[in-house]
Design a protein around this nucleic acid. Structure first.
Length: 868
RNA sequence: GGGCGGUUAGCUCAGUGGCAGAGCACCGGCCUUACACGCCGGCUGUCACAGGUUCAAGUCCUGUACCGCCCACCA
């Protein structure tokens, strides 16, 4: 049957995105097949981007990688489960909503059902601000205090707008997501899963609440987890300070970078083996200024090399202080409060005993209410006046722990928090990490590094508003204090709840906050406590048993390497604790996009190109081409040049396809050796590309496919085009081979260049190329009569060699193609293949009249133009 | 300080024991009937360094240097 193709006269790339993204949506070609058997399903745990930030070129890069795999698996016949999520939960959204609507959250307020409409209407004028501009664009005037449910409503309204923009970009990029599966981390579903899974952990005693010293951000006024820390280099100074040793007339010197914590000092410590201080152990020192007697103790963590070898233990200056405090059984004498300032204390009262309470009061009065930094400057003056500061402070730079989103160093504040027990399952988590297939393999060590370095259980409570609330209330005693042991939890069918407005079973709303009544847990969960459940959210855990069986454990977790310690780790943990299984088979870790200076592209450097602008400038296929060149886990330079190359490739595909489809000669069996060689080599290409893709090595697949395609255009087409223009058996053979090659190459390119391949496919095929079967060796060898044709493959190589030689000679002699070849000399080795390829090779080189002879090597002569 | 990765052409990179490669850039030529948004060709190397294993090393081993990342490091 002759091919009927509708080929445009001048095919172009412009407009393909608009045309095909609409069609794919209308035809639902990426819809997940709910009837597919588990063995046929390929499920992907897509990273939900933070919608209150901006998508940048790094997202385009890594999400393309996932899409390449999704498209390959789909064409291989898998029912691909490929949802998109939006991370709209957490601090970034909270900040953005506060600024945008001029509101602040007050969890003690009752829900106001009319507030949403009023606030949104008041803000209706003017477009949405730039999502990235959150921090600086705060509204003037006092913030309107709203209840937590109202605040969450506003978050939902604003993030819905952001999500539309994100979705439009992903569609334009050609991600083959099933948009019917989209989820959001603050959605009812996600809150249900978070609360249900949390209650499950509590029931299994895998989660607990504890009042303990916790890493604390004084600006956000919330606890933070180990995974959210980062170290920053800060200027600081060593202050050498003299403490008197009680009853001896001796003194001892310490060095500290935080002299403002002297009022919080509870002990001094030295190494047990440090001879210099052995005689002091067991004695008491007296803190300067505040005259508090503190014990001098020994602990192996005290480093004789640091400072004077004696350290001041404060509650709490750093995590080592916490260790010392706990292991030495020391009292708490906390001065830093939640907002980072020094709180008032009663000198002389229990716990604040002083040998000179008046002096302590007087010195401390000047410090109360000051931030740590200001208090430090003040106390240095006091120490100097008291003549206990030895020498001047010695400036140093040191590393200080920060909340990754914070602006001031973390403090350690005692507070009541929820924790998930991760320490006790550390060994099993390491085992899970070994079970997981990492792409690339070496990323596993990042995970092991992190698990081995865990310092404590995972603190999941945050003193914020926008997030999933803890579904817990507490009884109030008759004296009005909270009885944290008398926990009230809702029945499962009420989830999700908000304990700040919902009422526990058996109570009335009036009993909230009253003696004998109840109070809701004020906190929300860490955003990772929800994100870690993404497989549970998308796969229908405890809500859709059929879907769960069909999709979980998932096949692929794609993500970047910087969140191995957070998202990947926490997901493995939750899946292990809840289902006792690894959440996915493979983890594909993408690299970063680097700017030409080899630095990670970041907004602050002002070098981020807007993704939509990029797609519009180069075309989505071209940008995808560049992205596909970056292998898994490989940081890749932003390179507009590669996008240009991708664009040219797409254009070349249009033109080559136009040529192949332009002649509708009858098809016939593959009689000609060059056609048989083409198909043989094609089968080899398919084998290699398939195996590369199966190993998630899409980069190698693309390279091989592309190389083949250019050879097809440059050599094969040039050889056969004249034969194909003729008639008869050999013309039919050429037509058949070219059509087969085109069909195969379009399908091979389809994951990389979904728009241009779909466009060309539509010229002559029905249905979507993205739903067509991935090519197989078998379909090609069938054309050859059952087996690959090694002789033909060799003949093809010889043909290309001769052509390359003639072209080189023509070029070196600067002769146009119109000057015909008069004679060709060939090595004897070619005698066997030559008769079968000579017509095509000679025709392709304007050499049809040339004399051919055999001898030692290659030679060629041209009809020299007159005058040369 | 611990761990991981990298170092190959001017640039970006591939190369998984067997003749050092691709694209870009640069230079030269060509409108040959799909494509001038094209085609053909050319130039370009201390494979970071030092040692070792091997018939054979860019590739495997040991060490060094530098770059990047992860983790730890607040007295």
């Amino acid at each position: 049957m002759p091919v009927v193709a509708t080929v445009p006269d001048k095919p172009v790339l412009e407009g393909l995105e608009e045309k095909w993204k609409a069609r794919w949506n209308a035809d639902a070609i990426y819809r997940f097949d709910r009837s597919a058997d588990r063995s046929r399903v390929y499920s992907i745990d897509t990273p939900p981007p933070t919608v209150s930030g901006s998508l940048h070129v790094g997202h385009v890069f890594s999400y393309t990688h996932t899409d390449l795999i999704a498209r390959f698996q789909r064409m291989r016949g898998r029912a691909v489960f490929y949802p998109m999520g939006w991370d709209d939960n957490g601090l970034p959204t909270e900040r953005r909503v506060q600024n945008y609507y001029g509101v602040s959250c007050d969890p003690s307020l009752p829900y106001d059902s009319g507030l949403l409409e009023r606030v949104v209407r008041a803000n209706a004028a003017g477009g949405l601000p730039d999502p990235g501009a959150g921090k600086s664009s705060s509204k003037s005037g006092p913030a309107l205090a709203v209840s937590r449910p109202n605040f969450v409503e506003l978050c939902a309204v604003l993030t819905a707008e952001d999500e539309k923009v994100f979705e439009a970009l992903w569609r334009h990029l050609g991600l083959s997501v099933d948009w019917a599966l989209t989820y959001a981390t603050i959605s009812t579903d996600a809150r249900w899963v978070s609360q249900r899974a949390f209650l499950s952990l509590v029931a299994k005693d895998r989660a607990y609440q504890l009042e303990a010293p916790t890493l604390w951000d004084v600006d956000f006024r919330t606890a933070v987890a180990q995974a959210e820390l980062e170290d920053r280099e800060m200027p600081g100074a060593y202050h050498r300070i003299r403490f008197d040793v009680r009853d001896t007339g001796q003194s001892v010197e310490i060095e500290t970078t935080r002299p403002e914590l002297i009022p919080a000092c509870v002990a001094l410590v030295a190494h047990p083996g440090d001879e210099r201080y052995r005689s002091l152990l067991g004695r008491e020192a007296v803190t300067p200024l505040f005259k508090v007697p503190v014990p001098i103790r020994a602990h192996p963590l005290a480093d004789p090399e640091k400072g004077t070898g004696v350290a001041m233990i404060c509650t709490f200056g750093d995590v080592t202080d916490v260790t010392w405090w706990r292991e030495l059984g020391l009292p708490v004498r906390a001065v830093i409060q939640a907002n980072g300032t020094l709180r008032p204390v009663s000198w002389g009262a229990p716990g604040w005993e002083s040998l000179d309470a008046d002096a302590a009061r007087q010195h401390y009065e000047a410090l109360v209410g000051l931030s740590a930094t200001k208090a430090r400057a003040r106390i240095v003056d006091q120490l100097r006046e008291a003549d206990v500061l030895l020498g001047e402070p010695r400036p140093i730079t040191h590393h200080v722990k920060f909340f990754e989103k914070g602006d001031r160093p973390l403090e350690i504040v005692t507070s009541r928090q929820w924790f998930i027990k991760s320490m006790e399952v550390r060994a099993q988590l390491l085992e899970r990490g070994r079970e997981l297939e990492w792409i690339p393999e070496h990323m596993r060590s990042r995970y092991e590094n992190w698990v081995n370095g865990l310092a404590g259980d995972w603190c999941i409570s945050r003193q914020r508003f926008f997030g999933v609330p803890f579904p817990v209330w507490y009884r109030l005693r008759e004296d009005g204090t909270t009885d944290y042991d008398a926990r009230l939890v809702p029945s499962e069918d009420r989830l999700p709840i908000d304990p700040s407005t919902d009422v526990p079973e058996g109570f009335t709303a009036e009993q909230r906050g009253t003696p004998g009544g109840f109070v809701g847990d004020p906190d929300v969960m860490d955003t990772w406590a929800t994100s870690s459940l993404s497989p549970f959210i998308v796969c229908g855990w405890k809500r859709d048993e059929a879907l769960w069986k069909q999709t979980f454990p998932m096949d692929l977790r794609p993500q970047a390497h910087d969140i191995i310690r957070t998202w990947l780790f926490s997901t493995v943990l939750r899946s292990h604790l809840e289902e006792n299984v690894l959440p996915w088979k493979h983890a594909a870790i993408s690299g970063w996009v680097l700017d030409p200076d080899r630095k990670k592209m970041s907004k602050s450097k002002g070098n981020v190109v807007t993704p939509m602008g990029l797609l519009e400038q180069h075309g989505s296929d071209a940008v995808r081409y560049w992205a596909a060149k970056g292998g898994p886990g490989v940081d890749t330079a932003f390179d507009a040049g590669q996008m240009q190359v991708g664009r040219r490739l797409a254009i070349k595909l249009l033109n080559a396809s136009k040529f192949v489809l332009g002649k509708t000669a009858p098809e016939g069996p593959l009689t000609h050796v060059l056609d048989r060689g083409l198909v043989t080599r094609l089968a080899e290409l398919v084998r290699g590309a398939t195996s590369s893709f199966e190993r998630y090595d899409y980069t190698a697949a693309l390279r091989d496919i592309e190389t083949f395609f250019w050879w097809f255009c440059d050599d094969h087409i040039e050889h056969v085009k004249r034969r194909r223009a003729g008639a008869g058996e050999d013309a039919a053979s050429a037509t058949s081979a070219c059509l087969a090659a085109l069909s195969v190459m379009l399908r091979l390119f389809a994951p990389f260049l979904p728009f241009v391949t779909e466009e060309i496919w539509s010229w002559w095929q029905s249905g979507s190329v993205h739903r067509s079967p991935w090519p197989t060796e078998a379909e090609l060898t069938r054309l050859l009569g059952g087996t690959a044709d090694a002789d033909a493959d060799r003949a093809v190589r010889h043909a290309s060699e001769v052509t390359a030689f003639i072209r080189r000679e023509r070029s070196l002699r600067k002769l146009p193609f119109s000057v015909p070849v008069t004679s060709v000399g060939l090595p004897d080795a070619l005698q066997g293949d030559w008769p079968r390829v000579s017509d095509d090779v000679l025709a392709g080189n304007n050499a049809t009249q040339a004399r051919v002879s055999f001898g030692a090597g290659l030679s060629v002569d041209f009809a020299m133009p007159a005058g040369s």
